[in-house]
Design a binder for these strands. Sequence first.
DNA 1: ATATAAACGAGACGGTACGTCCCGTCTTTCG
DNA 2: CGAAAGACGGGACGTACCGTCTCGTTTATAT
Lengths: 208, 208, 208, 208
Amino acid sequence: MAKEKSTRKAGRPRSQAAQQAVLDAANKIMLTEGLGRLSIERVAAEAGVGKPTIYRNWANAHELAMAALMQEPVDPFRSPGGSAKQRLQAHLKSVLKTFSTSRGRQITLTLASAEQESELAKAFRNQVILQSRAFGHKLIEQAIAEGAVNPAVDIEAALDALYGPIFFRLLVGHLQVDESLAGTLVDMLFSGIEPSGKHSDSPPPTEQ
Amino acid sequence: MAKEKSTRKAGRPRSQAAQQAVLDAANKIMLTEGLGRLSIERVAAEAGVGKPTIYRNWANAHELAMAALMQEPVDPFRSPGGSAKQRLQAHLKSVLKTFSTSRGRQITLTLASAEQESELAKAFRNQVILQSRAFGHKLIEQAIAEGAVNPAVDIEAALDALYGPIFFRLLVGHLQVDESLAGTLVDMLFSGIEPSGKHSDSPPPTEQ
Amino acid sequence: MAKEKSTRKAGRPRSQAAQQAVLDAANKIMLTEGLGRLSIERVAAEAGVGKPTIYRNWANAHELAMAALMQEPVDPFRSPGGSAKQRLQAHLKSVLKTFSTSRGRQITLTLASAEQESELAKAFRNQVILQSRAFGHKLIEQAIAEGAVNPAVDIEAALDALYGPIFFRLLVGHLQVDESLAGTLVDMLFSGIEPSGKHSDSPPPTEQ
Amino acid sequence: MAKEKSTRKAGRPRSQAAQQAVLDAANKIMLTEGLGRLSIERVAAEAGVGKPTIYRNWANAHELAMAALMQEPVDPFRSPGGSAKQRLQAHLKSVLKTFSTSRGRQITLTLASAEQESELAKAFRNQVILQSRAFGHKLIEQAIAEGAVNPAVDIEAALDALYGPIFFRLLVGHLQVDESLAGTLVDMLFSGIEPSGKHSDSPPPTEQ
DNA sequence: ATATAAACGAGACGGTACGTCCCGTCTTTCG
DNA sequence: CGAAAGACGGGACGTACCGTCTCGTTTATAT
């Protein structure tokens, strides 16, 4: 920490250090002032780096934001013991915790405004969202193996029925989000909302 | 004397025509070139309006975008006949249809980047998302009244388990979205994903 | 009969109070913040008057400035007793005093930037400069009558040789201006700068 | 070779070509449309230059105007042979010629409205007025050396008695200006306006 | 007395220009 | 050489005023 101040050193080598400084500066700005205040010019100034050095690595501020947000791993994927349902709930809780922060909101916004098809956008989505979702996928497969979930279920849809509501509430902001939501969602998804002991009042539509 | 009539403010009233032209121009630009190309300057030029006239009514480009997107009603809330489940599916389909367009994506993005607490942002959320969701709320209440849904269910959570996955997929883009998703989600939500007989004595649903 | 009639227009007469308020506000702004800060909008606000009321009377800010500066008479044209030279000096001193103030500078600037041929500009020049100069004209004529000035002299040129240097120094600012300048100029103009007892025609060697 | 080593600042040097284009455009606008139509925006457009490039070099339109007017030397200071008086007259004629043009008027106006104490304003005054006046100074010193002018004379005052009337007439516009004014002024200044052979002050007090 | 007409304050209108910020590119110097 | 510094042409920002145009409200004649 003490030697961080004297990065001057009068030397040439800076190539890797410069990129790290850029990412750090970008993260700092996003954290303290928000995504909207992130500009290449400011990042360059705060990182003590020339603008071309940034453009050499990222095409625009958006890509830089994605790269910076990808720096720190999103989530440790807590998965303590317990039943399949309990493990899934614990995982969802950690997702909730991660995304209900300022950084989580920035990730959501960055994701929303990303050029959908760019390589970096895919990597970003994969790293910050889908990696976590993939962990959930594994948990559901375990649950099926344990006989806790019907093997015929559409796993992708089930996953989105768990993750979707979280992001939906964070995005739209119509309802507060806390960790109890994890339990509510998992319970509902497992048991459904039909009255107990009742089938559907019409034959389940097996064809679409 | 009796001058109680003048609730009217002094000065020339704001031109409703100018404001409409601004909103139309904004909508046109967003539709044809995307939210990113929306600038006050362009809108002013294309609407044949001075910039201050725009700033007199909206604080920045973001607010203008929200106002423009609010212009046209989002959805007609189709609700044909049929069972509660069927009506809910039909409604979700129309939501899917609306939001899987270019305009739907712009709405999502605008929503994501909105200043959460501003008056206009609340109005925007309310009009473009929550109004539709409120319709879903009514459908679920009907379903409960018809005995098709357990009265103890957390209706808000159930609604978000239906809308959330749609926006989640649109936002993250990990899976394509089509209208069949409506059926899948409703079925899953109603029956749950547990193996048959665990929470109800209903016969196992026919697998696909 | 002959009841004075049709010259008077119908309708509400122009408010003399409003016009005075406008001129006062304009003078105040010019005095405290300078000519450059004079804007119709500010004057209207400070005078508690609508902009059209100003435009009804003056075509633009420049004309308003001239009118406002003309409000107060420029100078009382002091002319105490004494010889013709002394009276001229006294007059010049009062001119110097008047124009070496902030208001004098604003007058100079307003004069410089005026549309030369407009009616108001002529009136302005006439009132703030030429009226004073006309007084000087009278003094020189008196001096001629007294035998103190050669009757063949070009009075206009002589006047400008007295007034010109004052404005020149104020405008260019290359030398400070104080009241002693009046005496210096008058003395020089009366006696000339040639060596005593000499009146021209001895061509010195013309080498460069 | 005298290669300046570290005095040189880092970074891309300012484009001398761009600055020249700006000055040329400014001069063109002032010449064809007048000082009042000079705006940074137009200059930028006509010079094919970004606005910040202009602001990087000049603080506002006024400074740019001064710089542009300084571009071309004001006067060649004609000084043909002849007596001291004749040389002075010739010089004044060239001053008259220079300043009775459109450009001369713009210079006068720019001078009048300049922030008196700014560095550039001083340079401007020095270059466009005082340099010429300094030439006149030299001519008067020569005249003194030749015995054509009384050595006790206040040279500064004498100079202003020559230049002042010219600018006074140009500024106020009460009398036309032509080259004959040079002769009139020089003659009057040299000989004075008192009756010939008279250098005393004995005022025969006539009536008031 | 009652119209009628003009001027009033207020303030929005279409515009122009301001001076600033940032974009993404380029040019130069230095280690 | 690579990387800092920083100027470049450009575009948009949000603000200040411009001079014009409604508004609804006085205030005077002219009917």
